[in-house]
Design a binder for these strands. Structure first.
Lengths: 132, 132
DNA sequence: TTGAAATATGTTATATTATAACAAAGCGTA
DNA sequence: TACGCTTTGTTATAATATAACATATTTCAA
């Protein structure tokens, strides 16, 4: 049987915890180094946990940075519709949860008639702090 | 002085040409293999050309695939505002040029007051062919 | 013109990110 | 229990990207 959708294995819990505690997106290998003392030895264990957490919507991958952040939405049902704001200077990443935006993009249809079931949007600019 | 904005070096021309001819996004190392007969020996030469072509708006990087496509817009002034449609099955990638969408996103402002000067949007789904 | 500073290119090596391949362990159920 | 399936562990390696330095080219002021 496939793993139950609400159950996290030990490795998955370890990886999720460290991502949730972090204030910034974490790279896979920095996760690996941090969790080696907890018994995780190799990249595949980390990447498998990351893959699963992504599928569950518990974390998201910031594609432009190859880094991972915890999902900030209460129920992580929108992992197929993600938007982030990224500061070019301090690299701060924030998940945008704006109902209007997600509605607009979820309903978006282009000329080709292709219907989308997932999107990822990354905004870049300077955050308030760095604008000063 | 900085290289003139409308001038491409030999390497840049070679790389751009091969990307423009391709029907699908190209990976950096597949570009490298194709251009080795033309005198380009190493990854840095390819990556430098790619970086410059991106800055000029001649090509875009598909972040979720680590691959590069030619810009389809006549004048490539919107390289800071990109949107793509990606088929999960056949991996076809199309650049979306939809004025309404780009206007919406360019003007988008979130609660934090951060103003964006760049965004990248990637839609995923099944293209017409693959839906059948 | 000429030569110092800046820019661009070539080259080797290596860092970073991710997955293949297979072995071992756990789990459900007939 | 023993068979099939899924998950986990482990080693090795593939794929992506950049550091570091050497060489060449261009720019432009003295």
């Amino acid at each position: 049987m496939t793993q139950k959708i609400d159950f996290l294995s030990k490795n998955q819990q370890i990886v999720l915890e460290i991502i949730e505690k972090a204030k910034e997106p974490l790279k896979a290998y920095s996760i690996l180094f941090s969790v080696q003392k907890k018994g995780i030895k190799g990249p595949p264990q980390v990447y498998r946990a990351l893959d699963r957490l992504i599928k569950l919507g518990k974390i998201h991958k910031i594609e432009s940075k190859n880094a991972f952040v915890a999902c900030k939405n209460d129920n992580c049902t929108i992992s197929n519709a993600t938007a982030f704001s990224i500061c070019d200077n301090c690299e701060m990443v924030t998940e945008i949860s704006n109902p209007k935006l997600s509605k607009y993009l979820t309903n978006f249809q282009d000329e080709t008639g292709m219907r989308y079931n997932k999107y990822n949007l990354e905004f870049f600019g300077l955050c308030k702090k760095c604008k000063k």
